[in-house]
């Protein structure tokens, strides 16, 4: 069946089998491999993408269900003027070790700070509670998301 999904601002029209999962479509058909497959059972959040701005587990959404929607993957975070604040904060605060969970963590973090400009520790931990980091680097992940929030708030106050 024909699906048309806008991924990171570019339209991708493809003929997919109804059983194609969104994550496989993104990785194999579109060729964006920043979205990872971890547990493949809706537990780990490595496959997180934003679907119309909302974080979802792309291993548990059919590509056909995303027809007509706007999807943002980790590759879409970077803007014309460089890294997204969440990406530079993960770099600066050492918010990753192996990096496998990082795309999901950053997308959830970006989505959180878009709604909550000053999230507390508990709010960040609650927001990322559907994403697993098996390096158990949660402390720096929480810190990085808060750093990004503070930088976004600072730059919007300054402008």
């Amino acid at each position: 069946m024909e699906v048309n999904i806008t991924i990171n601002g570019s339209e991708h029209a493809s003929d997919v089998e109804p059983r194609t999962l969104l994550v496989d479509h993104i990785r194999r058909t579109v060729g964006l491999t920043g979205t990872h497959v971890g547990c493949d059972t809706t537990s780990c959040g490595a496959c997180t993408v934003l679907m119309d701005g909302t974080p979802v587990k792309a291993c548990t959404v059919l590509a056909a269900q995303a027809d007509g929607s706007e999807v943002t993957t980790v590759e879409g975070l970077k803007g014309a003027d460089g890294l997204h604040p969440i990406q530079s904060a993960f770099t600066d605060d050492h918010g990753l070790q192996c990096g496998f969970c990082t795309p999901g963590m950053m997308l959830v973090g970006a989505s959180l700070i878009a709604e909550n400009p000053d999230p507390s520790d508990d709010e960040v931990r609650w927001a990322i509670s559907g994403n697993l980091c098996r390096c158990t680097g949660y402390i720096n992940i929480v810190k990085a998301i808060q750093t990004a929030a503070a930088r976004v708030a600072e730059s919007s106050n300054g402008s």
Partner: peptide
């Protein structure tokens, strides 16, 4: 029927459920 799919899709992936027709109500 398929709504959010957060139970049904994992069951289908594990082949515990194998509907011939999926009716998406979204």
């Amino acid at each position: 029927f398929l709504a959010g799919g957060q139970s049904l899709i994992p069951m289908m992936k594990m082949r515990v459920a194998f509907p011939e027709t999926l009716i998406d109500i979204n």
